[in-house]
Design a binder for these strands. Structure first.
Length: 820
DNA sequence: GAGCACTGC
């Protein structure tokens, strides 16, 4: 039998449900039974069958629906689906043979507390909930806005007050406020649903004479919170309550409560170090420990010493309060209960050796045995999700009709917005959504209707190796806190269940908290910012989490090589300018050099493309060659000079569509054919406009560009191609060398490449336009290690440019020595 | 001869 068994590695495990062919597909005949197979599937199926014996060509499985009796499938255990006489059969397995099934231990009886069984924080003494009438406190002119619709806003706010009063945090309003006012720094632990992010800032409004800032790690969160709180407070959005995120500012000097991203507050620190406009700063979601939140906490610790009138509140959802408290000289910790429903937890009896297989079984088991309610599945990445979705789509029509029909939906960031939105659409009766998501569903996207969570216990994590100057993407176990967060997604609307695809022992071995991002990231940007703010002793700065000496020294070295720091480690004029630009230091350095070389307008376009994620998409493998060929044919210059120039050509083509009216659908079609993101290009325009404005400021040259487009959100961009000069490709690429001088490699006689810095072997990634061509030297923007070291986004350079641009780094003669 | 989680200015 040539067909292999369904197993994510397709290596023939023992615990199998369905058989698949060598490609990992279920046989076409499986779907043909439901008239759902399409011609291409049939063709592929025939193609694969060639060369096999008559016996082998027989359908390895046929679904015999008569065998799928309800009595067999409603049990909670997944049935072993075995092959007998070429038929698929679900076996009812009520005995204790655990070899081929998943068994969960319900430990919820012992661990019903949704806060977890360890590290449980005690509530402070004297913590007695109280109810306070909101308007008795706040009934003053604060509620009036400039536009005069006082009554409408007020009645809306009054209606919302009923809901607000049901929030746990509201019941303790007086107690909380008095403590927050008494302390300079307070750590406030509030579970999801406590209402801390919306209510606490409002409680503090009457007692603050200046503005209150509330930071969020994500833009959508800042916007949504501000919108909600503006309604509750009876304010127009952007008046008393507003927000500020990149490309979107709805706040004025009158704003008393401002929600902003933590990146935005860091920008404000660069402009005005002491943040004089704020009297209270609230850092929300501190437990996420993003690089920017961590940096903020360090800055604010120092700022508190200079600003005696400043109050700071650190809000966190999990119980890592001790760390924050110690950092701020044993600041008081307050605890506010959440409003989550109970979530029963189930674990595997033995570890899963194949996560996709175990996951599919669990989905089928829940679908067969549990009441209505959608299923949210956490998987590490796109690969596992796409595989699972594909298999579920094929299996779903043939599952027992007594259970709801499974509707699998993928959810990850690189999906188009339209595809992402599908998870929110309601389904017909007798259907069950199965959302297969990455970490995006842990915090960024909340899907309603979820009652069951399946947690693979895995995530993808990007790790920066400063010794090698490259980053790798690894699949790694999550932390207990993350497991808790994931399971909480099942209890947002009513009681739910979480099925953890690992054992309880495995769970207990997990780290309590997720490792802070800063300890595994390239800290070149943070270090430049510290230097910009005049902090000389980087190693002994008030790091909430010290990134490590090696990592800091590596960053200082990179900045020195970019000429942002001089020999004594002091920031240069160039470094000063680089810190102001909203870009990675390398890209900032490139822009400044491009201005010097007179090719700024073109380089800005390329840099804008580089700073937008998911602009150039990875085509599906079956059309990959076709798409590459199209790109190559379209981008004549890119084929010769490499991928940076390709970006510029693509951008210019995209720009042309904007000059033709009614070309939107054409443009979308063009993007589709070349596997480019239409939405991504719109973001490129926003970034491009912003960078142009920054460059005008930095160069103090108002006429730097003939026309700077005002950023607006409508789709009718009327950008024109009106560059002052034609492209000078050597100048453009030399500008890029000023930022990526360390990312260069020399072509060897045997067609391989070796890096100029360490002499390591490096391969051009096959997605590059210059893949397979022999060149003297290359420059790349990314270096990723997967199956081997790959240079991605590769450009062709000349050896002489290396000497010209890199003489301060590359030792004289070194380049030639490597080349020989 | 190929896989990339999530954010931010």
């Amino acid at each position: 039998m040539s067909a292999q068994r369904l197993h994510s590695k397709f290596d023939g495990g023992n615990d199998l449900i369905l058989e698949v062919d060598n490609q990992g597909n279920l046989p076409a005949e499986f779907n043909a039974d439901n008239h759902k197979v399409n011609t291409s599937q049939r063709k592929r199926s025939r193609k694969r069958s060639r060369g096999k014996s008559q016996d082998q060509q027989q359908n390895p499985i046929e679904v015999d629906k008569k065998k799928l009796e309800p009595s067999e499938i409603i049990q909670t255990e997944t049935k072993e689906i075995s092959k007998q006489n070429g038929h698929l059969k679900l076996q009812n397995d009520n005995n204790n043979n655990n070899n081929n099934k998943i068994t969960y231990n319900n430990i919820s009886k012992n661990l019903r507390d949704s806060r977890g069984n360890s590290n449980k924080l005690k509530k402070p003494k004297n913590f007695k909930p109280k109810t306070v009438d909101f308007f008795s406190d706040d009934e003053d002119s604060n509620l009036k806005d400039t536009k005069g619709n006082y009554i409408d806003l007020k009645s809306k706010a009054e209606n919302l007050l009923k809901i607000r009063k049901s929030l746990p945090v509201y019941k303790a309003k007086d107690e909380i406020v008095s403590r927050l006012l008494k302390n300079r720094v307070t750590i406030l632990i509030g579970e999801t649903g406590s209402g801390k992010s919306t209510q606490i800032p409002q409680f503090l409004l009457p007692s603050n004479n200046k503005c209150i800032a509330v930071t969020q790690p994500r833009r959508v969160a800042a916007i949504n919170l501000a919108t909600r709180v503006a309604e509750e407070a009876g304010s127009y959005l952007g008046d008393k309550v507003g927000y500020s995120v990149r490309f979107d500012n709805k706040s004025t000097h009158n704003t008393k409560l401002k929600y902003l991203t933590d990146g935005m507050l860091l920008r404000e620190i660069i402009i005005q170090t002491n943040l004089p406009q704020y009297s209270t700063i609230i850092i929300d979601e501190a437990h996420e420990r993003t690089v920017l939140t961590d940096l903020l906490m360090g800055f604010l610790k120092e700022l508190l010493e200079r600003r005696s009138d400043l109050n700071l509140i650190i809000m966190s959802a999990t119980l890592d309060a001790e760390k924050f408290s110690k950092f701020y000289n044993n600041a008081e910790i307050l605890f506010v209960e959440g409003k989550n429903f109970k979530v029963d937890r189930y674990y595997l009896n033995s570890s899963a050796d194949d996560i996709v297989d175990t996951c599919l079984k669990s989905i089928i088991q829940i679908n067969n045995g549990e009441q209505e309610g959608d299923i949210l599945v956490f998987l590490p990445g796109q690969e596992e999700i796409d595989k699972s979705v594909g298999l579920l789509e094929r299996i779903a029509p043939d599952l027992p009709k007594e259970a709801p029909l499974i509707v699998p939906l993928p959810l990850y960031a690189s999906l188009s917005p339209a595809d992402q939105a599908k998870v929110f659409l309601p389904l017909k009766a007798r259907r069950r959504k199965v959302i297969l998501a990455t970490n995006i569903a842990e915090t960024s996207v909340t899907v309603p209707g979820v009652r069951y969570v399946i947690d693979s216990g895995l995530r993808k994590v990007k790790v920066w190796r400063h010794q090698l100057g490259l980053s790798t993407l690894l699949t790694a176990p999550i932390s207990k806190a993350a497991a808790m967060q994931r399971s909480g997604r099942a209890g947002r609307e009513r009681e739910g269940k979480v099925f953890r695809l690992y054992t309880e022992d495995d769970y207990l071995k997990l780290p309590n908290q997720t490792e802070p991002e800063i300890s595994r990231s390239n800290v070149i940007s943070p270090v430049l910012m510290l230097k910009k703010l005049g902090i000389d002793d980087i190693l002994n700065w008030s790091w909430l989490e010290h990134p490590g000496e090696d990592s800091l020294i590596s960053s200082l070295t990179q900045l020195y090589q970019l000429k942002a720091l001089n020999d004594s480690g002091t920031i240069t004029k160039l470094g000063d300018d680089m810190a102001i630009l909203p870009l990675e230091p390398q890209l900032s350095a490139i822009l400044i050099k491009a201005h010097e070389f007179g090719c700024l307008e073109h380089v800005i376009d390329i840099v804008s493309c580089l700073s937008v994620d998911n602009l150039i998409l990875n085509p599906q493998s079956d059309i990959r060659d076709e798409v590459n060929e199209k790109r190559r044919n379209l981008c004549i210059l890119g084929s010769k000079h490499g991928d940076l120039i390709m970006l510029k050509e693509l951008f210019d083509y995209y720009l042309q569509f904007n000059q033709i009216s009614d070309s939107k659908s054409e443009r979308a079609q063009w993007c589709k054919e070349l596997a480019l993101s239409n939405r991504g290009f719109k973001n490129v325009f926003k970034v491009r406009n912003q960078i142009r404005q920054y460059m005008v400021t930095l160069t103090k040259d108002k006429h730097l560009f003939e026309k700077i487009e005002q950023s607006d959100d409508n789709d009718d961009d009327d950008d024109k191609i009106n560059y002052s000069k034609p492209m000078d490709i050597p100048s453009i690429l030399k500008s890029f060398l000023s930022g990526f001088i360390s990312n260069t490699a020399i072509g060897m006689p045997d067609r391989s490449y070796r890096t100029t810095t360490t002499g390591q072997l490096i391969s051009v990634h096959p997605s590059s336009l210059i893949f397979g061509e022999k060149k003297d030297a290359i420059m790349y923007t990314d270096y990723v290690y997967t199956t081997k070291g790959y240079a991605r986004n590769v450009s062709v350079i000349e050896l002489s440019w290396l000497q010209e641009m890199g003489s301060h780094i590359l030792a004289p003669g070194k380049v030639n020595a490597v080349a020989e």
